[in-house]
């Protein structure tokens, strides 16, 4: 499968995402540039973490106007796979390719931690190698990861099974104590209505080697690869 990882001004994790895809997984992965509209025939677009455009105005608000995002929006509408990680998730919400919004953590602090997450829907391209209820561990590092949506929208997102991962405790329960940032319903990852656009605050690209913080991230990437077959 051919992957493309976008670099925006201020992206940080584009290199790690390319490393995970190329070096660890042996996938074909190319770097995409924010100012270049072309997607070069990639089958999955990754919007990496970081601080695109310095987080000016709101996290992700300005990246949406990059030339490449026009193509990403068209690609997503045509059913192409799009994965936004952390700042990438924020960008996809701002671009209205995902529902809701991400705002300042309730603690007002930047969080850098490793968290437990429970798989809520295992029949999506991003989660198909898991079973519902599986608990995985991934790193998080963000200042604005609090997922919010209107009551109406949140109810729809829940009802349609668009919630993919929830923050949980060691026993797999989505408690308030296990919620690192105050996200509504402990939501850590969601999909769009057509299940081809995904956003998650945790970083799968930082969890691809057993010696360096675990491999749970790999399985998310491999799920997308399996989708391609």
């Amino acid at each position: 499968m051919k992957w493309g990882v976008i670099t925006f001004p201020g992206s940080l994790d584009d290199g790690d995402a390319l490393y995970a895809l190329r070096e660890v997984m042996g996938q074909e992965a190319i770097a995409l540039w924010h100012a270049d509209e072309r997607l070069y025939g990639v089958e999955c677009v990754v919007l990496p973490g970081g601080f695109s455009y310095g987080d000016y105005l709101r996290c992700g608000a300005l990246a949406r106007f990059s030339p490449v995002m026009k193509s990403v929006a068209r690609f997503a509408r045509d059913g192409g796979l799009v994965l936004g990680i952390c700042n990438g998730f924020q960008i996809l919400c701002e671009a209205r390719l995902l529902p809701g919004a991400l705002t300042r953590n309730r603690s007002l602090s930047f969080i850098c931690d490793r968290v437990a997450l429970r798989v809520e829907n295992a029949s999506t391209p991003l989660t198909r190698l898991f079973s519902v209820g599986d608990v995985i561990r991934l790193p998080i590092k963000h200042g604005a990861g609090l997922f919010v949506a209107s009551d109406e929208e949140l109810a729809l997102v829940e009802k349609r099974g668009q919630v993919l991962l929830r923050y949980v405790n060691a026993e797999g329960q989505a408690t308030d104590e296990a919620n690192p940032n105050g996200s509504l319903n402990n939501i850590a990852a969601i999909a769009n209505e057509t299940f081809n656009v995904f956003g998650l605050m945790p970083h799968p690209e930082h969890a691809v080697e057993a010696d360096l913080g675990g491999e749970d991230g790999l399985k998310l990437f491999y799920s997308l690869v399996a989708e391609d077959r």
Partner: peptide, 14 residues
């Protein structure tokens, strides 16, 4: 400003 009904942790801290 943050919408009515939306948690505003900054406002609360202030």
């Amino acid at each position: 400003t943050p919408r009515e009904g939306i948690l505003d942790p900054q406002g609360r801290a202030v």
